[in-house]
Each structure stands twice: as C-alpha cells, then as structure tokens.
Design a protein around this nucleic acid. Structure first.
Length: 741
DNA sequence: CCAGTTTACCTTTTT
DNA sequence: GGTAAACTGG
C-alpha cells in the first residue's frame, strides 16, 4: 500500500479533497444531493489507511441501510487491497448485533437471542395484552408499539418514563411487562439492539475501554437520519469526543425520517458538543441539469430551519420541467405510459426511467397502466422476501429449533398448518404459562386432558425436527423443516399456494448462498472477546431479521422503476416522473398536523426532484381513488414553489378559469370517463345552491379550495372544502361566503 | 371445540 | 387489495 496515493485523490474537487484529507479530527461534511458523498466517505477511509493513519481494525463506519454498507465495502475493496472483515462497517443495527453477540453475557442476553422485526414485535405486544387481560381498544397494540419504540430511541427504560395519570402509568407498566416478556423469551426488538448495546458500553468499563481504544475513526453516513440514542451511542464510543475522530457526513435538507425518531438537531449538537472546527460544504452537483437543480433549490428555500446550502452545477440548464394536470389518477397513469412509450421511441431504455410517488398505495394504478400497455416494470417496496407469510412461518419453526421458548414463533406456528390445536387449548396453555411464569413450550407439561395431548404432539414434532436436523448443513435443515412441519404439504393443496411453494424453495436456495458467502469471508478470529460462535442457523435468522431482503425486484431485465420517494433516496435516474403532486397526498395530510411536518414533506420533495439527471416530469390529478373512495384534490403547494420559467405545462393552465368540474366537461370526454362519473355523481346528489363536489371555490378568509363533500340542503346545507393553505373545513353555505373560483 | 368463511380495517414513509 | 379478527357451520 503506497504511502501517498495520488490516484485515490484524482478527480476530486477542492471541497471533496479538503474533506478526504482532513487531519484526524472531528468533521462535519454537509454533502448536498449528488455531490459525491459516498465517494468522499469511502475515499476518506482509503486515504486514512493509505496514509498509515489507521489500520483496518481502527475503523468503524456506520450507515443506515445494508445496501449502503455493501456499496461502501465494494468500493473500498476496489480502491485498495484491504481486509474489510476486520473493519466494522454496517448499519447501526448490524453493528449493535455484532457487539451484543460478542458480549451477550455482559449484556444479559442468551447466546442465541433472536431478533424481532416489527411485525414480530407487534404480535408479541398483542399476545402480552391478551395475557394481561388488557383491553386492546383502550390500548391499541400499534400505539403501544410506537410508545415503546419511541422511548427506547430516547434511551428511556420504563423507570425513566414520566407518567402523570392512570393512562400513562398503565402504558409504562405495559412497557415494563413487555420488556420482561422479551427477556424471558430471549428476544430483542430493533430498538433494543441499540439500547442494549448502548447500556453495555455505558455500564461495562472494560468493554467500553476496549472499543474506545480500538476505534480511532468513526465515520457516519446519512448523519441527519440519526436518532437521539444513536447519537449518544456514537458519542460514548468516541469517549465523549475525546477518543475517536468522528467524520460525519449528512445533508439536513434530505432528512426524511423524523417520523421514526431521526433528529436533524443532532447535526447542530454534533457541531457544538464535539467542537467541530469547520464545516465543509459539498455544493457542486454532478448529477442534475441546471433547471432541475434550480427547481430543487427554489423548493427547499421555503424551509426555515436549514443549515443553508445551495447546489450548483457546471452542466447546462437542460430541458424545462414538464408538468401535466390529469383529470384523474387513471388519466395520469395513462399519460405516463404514453410518455414512456414516446421516450422509448426516442431510444431511451426503460431502466433509465423512474416513477416516484409519495405512498405505496399509489403504485397500483401505475402498475395497472404499465401492465396493460405491456411495459415491463419493477416495483420496489411492498412485501419483502423475508416478510412473506410462508417464509415467516418457516423461519418460526427454525427459531423454535434454536430456542423453544420463543413464544412469538411458537404462537405463530403451533397451529399452522392446522393440527387440531384450537383457541381453547391455546388459552389453557397461555394461562398455564402465566401461572408458572414460563414459556408456552415449557407450560405444556402443566396442562391436562386433550389440550395436553395435542400440544405434546406438537412438542414431539419439534423434537423430531431437531433430531432430524442435527448435523445437517443449513439448507438441508430448512428443507427438512419445511417438509416435516407440513408447510409444503399445506401449500401444495392450496390452489393459490404455488408462489408460496416456490418461495419456500427459494428460502432453501437463499440459505445455501448465505452459507457460501459466509464461508468465503469467514468471521476472522476477532480480537474481541468471545468471537461469536453463533452457528449457521442463528446467523441466518439474524440475517433474515436485519436484512429483510431486496424489495422483491428482479435484476437484469430492462424495466421501468417504480418506488416511493423514500425508497429512491440515494438513487439517481436519467428520467424521473413524480406523480400525485396533490395537497393531502404530497404533502401528505397526516404530516400537516405535525409540527415541522410540512418541512419534512418539502425535504421529501427535494429528494424526489434531485433524483433526476436529465429530465423531470411532474404530474397531478384532479380526482383520485383512495381507500375505495374518490377524493378531489388540488395541486400541491410544492409545484407552486417552483418558478414558472422552469416549467413547461403540457396541459393548459385553467386553474383560475373555472371549477375542476367545469373543465373536466370542457375537455369533451377526451380525458376518459372518470371526470364524467364524478360529474354525474355530483348531479345525482342534488348539490345545493349551485355548488358541486369537485368545484373550486374562494373564501374571504381561507382562500382557494376545492369542495370535497356536501350534505344537507336549503338552510342546513354544508360543504366540506379542502383549502390550499387552511386545510379541510366544513362550512354552512347559509353563513360562509363562498364564491366559485 | 375446531376450521373454513365473512367481515372489518387499514395504509406515509422503514432499519 | 390484503390480512387479521369475528362469525358460523360442522
């Protein structure tokens, strides 16, 4: 390895170079979209190694996605020959898991602890509520799950949570009970991985000292997405800033995970608490044409709380952004398909094109249109491989092999496929378990009568599985379990079970390639205490929980890419469509209620816009089917925030010329039947005083809006209006001064 | 007492 | 449109 490696640094601009070659000290890099962030991060690591400022084992690099971690590793090994295995590179959850496996005893966990993903966590909570006879109407499991996770992410155990009334006291009590249940079953949820390893470092001085001395350089990707606990974890590991040099890369404008506890405030806190000497801004964008960047800059300027940054490019302005107003979501989808066809006639590949939307529910219409047109497409999102029910069932059996006391897994498959163990027997079992303070599996011996015999049969099945699996390689273990459990038989008899059968086979294949991968890069004899001797099965189950799989999109074929804006973060495409630019959808209505909610939505829009290299299409629809009912939306404020000269309207701008209702009709049916249907429905409802659902109206105080609902007649007539800036309101027509806009 | 059928409910984003 | 709880028949 050369002492100075000019080739490493060639092609970097001045700011990138400054960031990469900073002397070892704390640094905050504000890296705008498309500014070469990942390159800076990986080159920084390579530079530290090449300069001899650190050995591989001194490096800890943390990312948010497995994908980012893999990419970093791949790029790094391409840059210089290095034993990446002795570096700690991974997601927060992955690294915490590694820490806890190595120190499970000190952390108070069984060696074989299992990881609950969120759906496992939810069912664990439901089971808990049932066993404590808690009314799940009063304490909805989802709320409780959010409550528990939010507190864990703040670093708060039940004892630290403030309770001021009976209700909050009860919730804290349930939080405590949930912890006990997890501890008894030997399982940890996602947030627990973080909190437990934080507490391990905090309380165990030898362990803390060991890692503080080992890691001299901590590099953090997507720093704006860290939550409070992750920040404290980093701070602890760097000995409050006195130890490892922390190199944090982030973009406050791309912070889009506040909803799950991410705290942009960490960037300010880091600057202050670590006394970061200087902040380096990467503002040159290598991705997008000028007009696209101008639009992105114009949008994000509307946010008040920013560290401040303005992207620029040496590329030309490029094309204007194309805007399309559709009569309906179906129309929007049809237009997108037409446009894609035109692009392909121009010689564009489908894989250059991405369709972005705010929420997954929007993909269906787009998929339908693409499918009907025979255009290949790939959807990112939705169910991932390890989240499919047949896979989760198979994994549950595997978990029971490793740990029969895993009640979540037990409850999941005890009667699946059905084997005559009904609700009644399970109730008795749960009662016995509570009475004896033991797991469901252990409670079987305390039963009597029929319940005991059927459950002992099940227990015997598990024993036979374990015996049959002994000594087999992992893929064969899985195959054996799938067979013996009756899962294969069950899906064979199910008319719609063919895909599921194929997935179960795929699980065996996945295990085979997982084992092969592990063999190629064996966990090197780590200098850490008790190098995790987890065994293939535990490693595979951990892999399944932490990396739920590639969002089910097959590689290879040339296909249009469909995904949510969140999923698109970090990606780039030559041509991007952002669809559904409507108030209530994007920005999402739920976000309007939250403080700073609109700002987060705006950052989301900023992320969406900056995905495009050459061409950006923006579209919205007047009516949209959502959750089975038609909604009448007005154009998103974000579209209004883009300067008009950057835009090219593909549809006439009639927005002030009449109601949505009127111009749907004016288009003379050429835009499909959807607007007509809305029209007819409105007429049939005998709307009062000449107002119709879907019509644009003006109000002295609230401004412009669209009527989305109506009821009553005469003096009692009321309409619900969705105002651009004031939100949705019910107004009595006799009182409110509404005028057609 | 269990198993298949119907109904209800939900969906903003996810490691 | 898809799953999980409630229902009802065997």
């Amino acid at each position: 390895m050369s002492v100075s490696s000019p080739h490493l640094l060639s092609g970097l601009n001045a700011e990138q170079l400054a960031a990469v070659t900073l002397e070892p000290r704390h640094a905050l890099i504000l890296a705008g979209a498309g500014s070469g962030k990942t390159r800076v991060l990986t080159t920084r690591i390579a530079w530290l190694l090449a300069q001899g400022l650190a050995g591989p084992h001194n490096i800890l690099a943390v990312t948010f996605t497995n994908k980012a971690a893999k990419e970093m590793l791949a790029r790094l090994s391409a840059m210089l020959p290095v034993n990446t295995r002795s570096m700690w590179i991974g997601t927060f959850h992955g690294l915490c898991n590694r820490l806890l496996r190595a120190h499970h005893r000190e952390a108070g966990l069984p060696q074989m602890f299992q990881i609950l993903d969120q759906s496992d966590q939810l069912s664990a909570i439901k089971r808990l509520l049932k066993s404590l006879n808690v009314d799940d109407e009063k304490f909805p499991p989802r709320d409780l799950q959010h409550f528990i996770n939010a507190h864990k992410e703040q670093g708060e155990r039940p004892a630290a949570v403030e309770a001021w009334d009976d209700y909050s006291r009860k919730r804290v009590e349930l939080y405590a009970a949930y912890e006990q249940q997890c501890q008894r079953e030997g399982v940890v949820d996602f947030a627990e991985l973080l909190l437990r390893s934080f507490e391990l470092l905090e309380r165990n001085e030898p362990v803390r000292n060991h890692y503080q001395q080992r890691f001299r350089h901590i590099l953090v990707d997507e720093f704006q997405d860290t939550n409070k606990l992750q920040y404290r974890w980093l701070k602890l590991l760097s000995d409050g800033g006195a130890g490892a040099a922390v190199f944090a890369v982030g973009d406050d404008d791309q912070s889009i995970y506040a909803f799950r506890g991410a705290d942009v405030g960490n960037m300010h806190a880091f600057e202050r608490e670590f006394a970061v000497p200087e902040v380096i801004r990467l503002e040159q964008n290598y991705r997008s044409q000028g007009n696209i960047l101008d639009a992105a800059n114009a949008i994000i300027k509307h946010n008040e709380t920013r560290l401040g940054k303005n992207l620029w490019t040496e590329a030309g302005s490029g094309e204007p952004l194309c805007v399309f107003e559709a009569a309906s979501d179906l129309e929007e989808a049809r237009w997108i398909v037409e446009e894609i066809r035109a692009l392909m006639r121009d010689g564009r590949a489908r894989s250059e094109i991405a369709l972005l939307y705010r929420s997954n529910a929007q993909s269906r219409v787009l998929e339908h249109a693409l499918f009907s047109a025979g255009l290949p497409y790939r959807v990112y999102g939705g169910l991932r491989f390890f989240e499919r029910q047949e896979i989760k069932h198979a994994l549950a059996y595997l978990r029971l092999l490793a740990n029969p006391d895993d009640d979540t897994a037990f409850a999941r498959v005890v009667n699946f496929p059905t084997r005559g163990i009904g609700a009644r027997s399970l109730e008795q079992l749960a009662d016995a378990a509570r009475l004896h303070q033991c797991s469901l599996h252990q409670a079987i011996v305390h039963l009597a009568g029929k319940a005991q015999s059927v459950l002992q049969n099940f227990s015997g099945l598990l024993d036979r599985m374990r015996e049959g699996a002994a000594g087999l390689p992992l893929p064969e273990v899985i195959d054996h379990v799938v067979e013996l459990s009756g899962l294969r038989e069950h899906y064979r008899n199910d008319r719609e079970g063919q895909d599921r059968l194929a997935n179960l086979d795929e699980l065996v294949t996945a295990a085979a390639s997982f084992v092969a991968e592990e063999d190629r890069r064996p966990i090197a004899a780590d200098d850490d205490a008790a190098a995790a001797d987890e065994g293939e099965l535990i490693a595979f189950l951990t892999h399944a929980a932490l990396e739920a799989g590639d969002h089910q999109a097959e590689d290879g074929d040339d296909a249009v890419q469909l995904m949510t804006v969140h999923a698109a973060k970090g990606l780039e495409f030559n041509i991007v469509f952002i669809s559904g630019l409507e108030e209530g959808l994007f920005p999402h209505e739920n976000a309007l209620l939250e403080t700073r909610g609109v700002e987060e939505e705006r950052r989301l829009m900023y992320v969406a816009v900056t995905r495009a290299r050459q061409r950006l299409y923006l579209s919205f629809a007047q009516t949209r089917m959502l959750h089975g009912q038609t909604r009448y939306n007005i154009v998103s404020r974000f579209l209004d925030e883009i300067p008009q000269p950057l835009l090219k309207w593909l549809t006439p701008q009639l927005r002030n010329a009449g109601s949505a209702y009127a111009f749907g009709a004016a288009r003379n049916g050429s835009y499909g039947n959807d607007t007509r249907k809305a029209e007819i429905a409105a007429l049939q409802r005998d709307e009062p005083s000449g107002f119709a659902v879907g019509q644009s109206v003006m109000h002295d105080k609230f401004g412009r809006g669209v009527i989305i609902n109506a009821e009553g007649s005469g003096q009692d007539a009321r309409v619900q209006v969705n105002f651009t800036h004031a939100g949705s309101k019910w107004l009595a027509l006799a009182v409110a001064k509404l005028t057609p806009a």
